[in-house]
Write a protein that binds this DNA or RNA. Structure first.
Lengths: 185, 185
DNA sequence: GTCCATTAATAGGAAGTCCTACTATTTTGG
DNA sequence: CCAAAATAGTAGGACTTCCTATTAATGGAC
């Protein structure tokens, strides 16, 4: 999952990342920040640290989300498509709209819909007014899975993000400003 | 690139995501949050909104980083390996250490090092004391590229993250707490 | 009213992530 | 001391993302 990573991680040569055997007593990204300053890049240090943190946090959160969805047989990318359809009034949307709303490349939607279709969770049909367009519709089984997956995600991830409520709100607000200045909305 | 995405994006059927032709006047993630509340998932709404924002912000930032690195012929994943070696005193590290510091799967390191080696930016050699281990070392050309890439990233991304300094610091702090409670350090 | 430009979707390919399985060493335990 | 367990790295596969190019259909310009 477009998961990328951080910069300059654990400092101890024996760190066991996933097992967590060795607990670090400092923040490795903070250490990287210090190295940035030492090398005369002080003006970029805060930006580097923030962006590196973003990369790493994304990796952590995405891993939790995928772990929750795995038993249900979907990935996050496909779950997003299901939820988009679930929220639409008719339970169906053109490919193009899915790509626009998820902000991904059209080919990524083709890929996801291929797999959802193979799994019987959605169907494809030609748009009646524009024969170039393809309408993707949720099947009954797709609707059920969307609901079960949402229940699982809410319970295991969204309701317990391991962050105080204030932080949650702050995170959303700060990222909201970042997205806005990137022209995201 | 490894970019994942947000949930329930633009609302206008004709939104042109990347071209930015149609500017939205509201935050689509905020709209998704409202739908979460409407469906009785109020307890998960803030978590969903924060995590979805994180996914989307990651996608935006990673795209900027990759765009900056592309002219230099490296990806962010490979750049991270180069910088790790650059910061090490000898300019070389075992594969295992690289994986631990970048918090990625060993096979991801194999993949990245394969490509760096093909490009003449690093070399592989057997560890003298442990013939299972492989030492990756920066070449002169790898060192030069690491420096040019860092200069480019600092100038084009890290020094101008399109966020006020306070936000930058807040973002780092909040994500720091998130990472800590996830057992990241 | 036809011809051309635009648009919707897909095909194929590169690159990243992870996982499981496998090989080759090193270390440990009886 | 030698067999069994642990470790380092790689191979192959699944999945996602993006890119470029192609096909089919729509719509605008003259």
């Amino acid at each position: 999952m477009d998961v990328n990573v951080s910069l300059l991680y654990p400092d101890s040569m024996t760190a066991e990342p996933r097992a967590g055997a060795t607990r670090l007593t400092f923040d490795p990204i903070d250490a990287a920040r210090a190295q940035w300053v030492e090398n005369g890049w002080a003006g970029a240090a805060d930006g580097m640290a923030a962006i590196t943190s973003l990369m790493r946090a994304h990796q952590i959160v995405l891993a939790r989300v995928e772990a929750t969805l795995r038993p249900l047989g979907v990935t996050f990318a496909r779950y997003e498509v299901l939820m988009l359809l679930w929220f639409s009034s008719r339970g169906s949307l053109p490919m193009k709209v899915i790509a626009a709303r998820l902000q991904v490349h059209p080919t990524s939607v083709t890929n996801a819909v291929d797999r959802l279709e193979d799994a019987g969770l959605v169907t494809r049909s030609t748009h009646p007014d524009d024969r170039r367009a393809v309408i993707v519709a949720l099947t009954r089984s797709g609707r059920e899975l969307a609901e079960r997956a949402t229940a699982a995600l809410n319970a295991d991830v969204f309701e317990r993000p391991d962050l105080p409520d204030d932080d949650l709100r702050d995170l959303f607000d700060v990222l909201s400003r970042l997205r806005r200045s990137a022209g995201d909305f």
